[in-house]
């Protein structure tokens, strides 16, 4: 039976686990299934976790493996018909003002999953490049090049011409601030 501190830490990581799952598969209900399965596996394999390493990275690895082995195809179909996937989860009234978050989310869903997961892992979830590389089973260099490709594709999808648009975003930010 997992010790109490493992359980406490597991519960503390659930919001991140879910955020990663939703970002990965693009469907809230499917993400919940992924998280549930991840919790089950983490519970039964708790002794495989190495204390002192990142529990978050360990859990992300489990969730990602389940996603890639079980759900990928069906998830894609759902994702395409469910572009506004995250809206239901979002607490309204608390958005960054300078970028339309819904536009951004839609653009995210259009990225290849290999790029999206790296953006989320490194850019938002707080895992390191090294941890992201371990989670994805690739070299750190691959993480960096995927990250850079992902950013370029986002810019293309969002129709931000590099410099002019950056200035536009800034002036919007000034106005909003």
């Amino acid at each position: 039976m997992p010790p109490n501190d493992f359980k406490t830490d597991l519960i503390a990581e659930m919001p991140n686990l879910r955020a990663f799952g939703v970002s990965l598969c693009g469907s809230a209900s499917m993400a919940d299934d992924l998280v549930q399965e991840t919790l089950l596996r983490a519970w039964s394999k708790w002794d495989k976790f190495q204390p002192g390493t990142s529990l978050r990275a360990w859990l992300f690895t489990i969730l990602r493996n389940i996603y890639y082995s079980n759900c990928r195809k069906s998830v894609r179909e759902v994702q395409d018909s469910d572009g506004a996937y995250a809206q239901r989860l979002v607490v309204p009234g608390d958005q960054e003002s300078h970028v339309d978050l819904e536009d951004f989310r839609k653009a995210l869903t259009k990225l290849p999953v290999e790029q999206r997961e790296v953006l989320i892992l490194v850019g938002a979830s707080g895992v390191s490049y090294e941890e992201a590389a371990a989670i994805c089973g690739v070299e750190v260099g691959t993480i960096k090049s995927r990250l850079s490709r992902a950013r370029s594709q986002l810019v293309a999808i969002l129709g931000w011409g590099a410099r002019t648009e950056a200035r536009g975003e800034r002036s919007k930010l000034r106005r909003a601030g």
């Binding site: 919001p15 955020a19 970002s23 989860l89 979002v90 960054e96 978050l101 989310r105 850019g123």
Partner: peptide
């Protein structure tokens, strides 16, 4: 990205 992710974390 962080705004997107933080919204999900806070849900």
């Amino acid at each position: 990205l962080r705004a997107h992710y933080d919204d999900l974390v806070d849900a």
